[in-house]
Design a binder for these strands. Structure first.
Length: 457
RNA sequence: UCCCCGGUAGCUCAACCGGUAGUAGCGGGUGGCUGUUAACCACUAGGUUGCAGGUUCGAGUCCUGCCCGGGGAGCCA
């Protein structure tokens, strides 16, 4: 039985069964005037029952607004409001009222769209700490419901904006986006770090890295990039590991080691400036300050692998030459810098086969890792690639891949009009974790895939 | 893969040297309160202690195996 309010409103705007919203809660604050009749489609964020008044915090994707239901107006509506479970979705009609310097809604009509009891605890839209270590298991188990949490939403909006800014940057710089396959025969690393599946009777893998395909595309387009997930079945439990992570990869033709370093520095400092300016709301919710002037001070300092080992030695950490730097090593090193910094020239022994050997010291590769500040670890890696067939073949022999038929086409790229090129790869979640100071990369992605955790939801 | 730690109410946790599970907080239910904002106050319900064995008169507690999680190492982006 529609009330007068309901019918009058529906005649105004909503004369159909399925309603697409034309304004959101944020618009009520920004654009609507006191006295205006509004309709809110959203959720009950929280509720406070008083004797003759109920306070509802109504939320939608854009924010929260307080709504009041007085017993005096209509006792049915009042009772309905009293019994609403937090998180229930509702349609509310009401009048915009002044509340000190802000606004609230005086409710005239409430329709329950979907009841949310029994309750989800803690309530996703309440202000509990979604990153509380005690709640890790619960939040991940109920991740599908906790996406409604304000702080998680802020992280995911930040992520969305960050990726948009990267795409803008690539576009500005004349790159084209290449959609590389996710199903592939080519592993970058060892077989025990691959997720395999059945491709019409043939064993293939989820990609670990799309660089092979970008290296084909770079020979045509000269500047190419790709953003998609990479998969690593590494049995890793650290704060920086996801079995499925979003990977930004780019290749540039006729660029060498120094070019790719300068290029990525420009990109990172651009992205930091833009994201800070464009995510003010999210940063405020997350109580994070991105120190732009400090973090964008390029060029970033460079130390060589040998220098890194010496610094570690000075800090009483003896590292055998030729081993890769651990998270802890890299974290100790970061104490000496207030910006990100490069570690250049990783030993050939520990690097993958496509990366160029340093002609001035053949034990080293033309690679570098960009290390974040404050112990947040490696952000990205750059490499000059091997572009000559013989050199590549020699490296593949070294890694036992030279007779592997699957790499034949990759070798062919070095045979038919090959060109020098360099590239970089970055895990998006690691960048987000650093910028937002998150405890774990799992909170930088909506549905994390983690070693020793069921992929559910 | 290795090393630590944990699994008790819907959630977070208590429970001494092994003695038969808590008036705990949050959440639920009932009642009260027109200005609260994670409202508050009173009362109340709620448990095959992860699973399977074992030791014991007796196991949440000790032992073995398994399952499920968390932290760290190694390895990577």
């Amino acid at each position: 039985m529609p009330s007068q309010w309901s019918t009058s409103l529906r005649n105004l705007a909503w004369n159909k069964e399925f309603i697409m919203k034309s304004y959101y809660i944020k618009d009520i604050f920004d654009k609507m005037e006191v006295g205006q009749i509004v309709e809110i489609l959203g959720w009950v964020a929280s509720k406070r029952n008083m004797g003759k008044i109920v306070f509802l915090d109504l939320a939608d994707s854009t924010g929260k607004i307080q709504a009041t239901v007085s017993k005096g107006i209509d006792s049915n509506i009042f009772l309905k409001a009293r019994e609403l479970a937090p998180e229930s979705s509702v349609r509310v009609e009401g009048v915009v009222k002044k509340l000190r310097k802000s606004k609230e809604i005086e409710v005239k009509v409430i329709e329950l769209i979907c009841d949310a009891s029994p309750h989800v605890v803690p309530q996703p839209r309440s202000s509990f700490d979604i990153f509380d270590k005690k709640l890790v298991d619960l939040i991940l188990t109920k991740r599908h419901l906790y996406l409604r949490n304000e702080r998680l939403m802020a992280v995911l909006k930040f992520r969305h904006k960050l990726i948009e800014i990267f795409r803008e940057w690539f576009r500005k710089e004349g790159f084209i986006e290449i959609h590389a396959p996710i199903l592939t025969q080519l592993p970058l690393y060892d077989d025990d770090t691959l997720f395999s599946l059945d491709f019409f009777g043939e064993r293939i893998f989820l990609t670990q890295c799309v660089a092979f395909y970008l290296e084909s595309a770079v020979c045509a387009f000269e500047k190419v990039y790709n953003i998609n997930p990479s998969f690593r079945a590494e049995k890793s439990r650290g704060k920086r590991y996801l079995a499925e992570f979003w990977h930004i990869k780019a290749e540039i033709a006729f660029a060498d080691f120094n070019d790719i370093i300068a290029f990525t520095e420009g990109m990172i400092s651009y992205v930091i400036r833009r994201i800070r300016a464009e995510s003010k709301d999210e940063l405020k919710i997350l109580k994070v300050d991105i120190e732009e002037s400090r973090l964008t001070k390029t060029p970033y300092p460079r130390i060589t692998y040998d220098e890194a080992l010496n610094s570690l030695k000075a800090m009483n950490t003896i590292k055998e030459w030729g081993k890769s730097l651990s998270d802890m090593d890299v974290s100790s090193l970061s104490k000496a810098f207030d910006t990100p910094f490069w570690v250049t020239g990783n030993p050939r022994r520990i690097e993958a086969f496509p990366y160029k050997i340093d002609p001035s010291n053949t034990q080293l590769t033309k690679t570098a890792d960009l290390i974040a500040t404050e112990g947040f670890g490696e952000l990205l890696g750059v490499a000059e690639k091997i572009w000559q067939r013989n050199e590549l073949l020699e490296r593949m022999k070294e890694k036992g891949k030279d007779s592997d038929e699957r790499y034949r086409w990759y070798l062919e790229l070095r045979q038919f009009g090959s060109i020098p090129h360099s590239g970089f790869g970055m895990g998006i979640e690691r960048l987000i974790r650093w910028l937002l100071r998150l405890g774990h990369v799992r909170d930088a992605i909506p549905f994390p895939r983690l070693f020793r955790r069921h992929p559910n939801p």
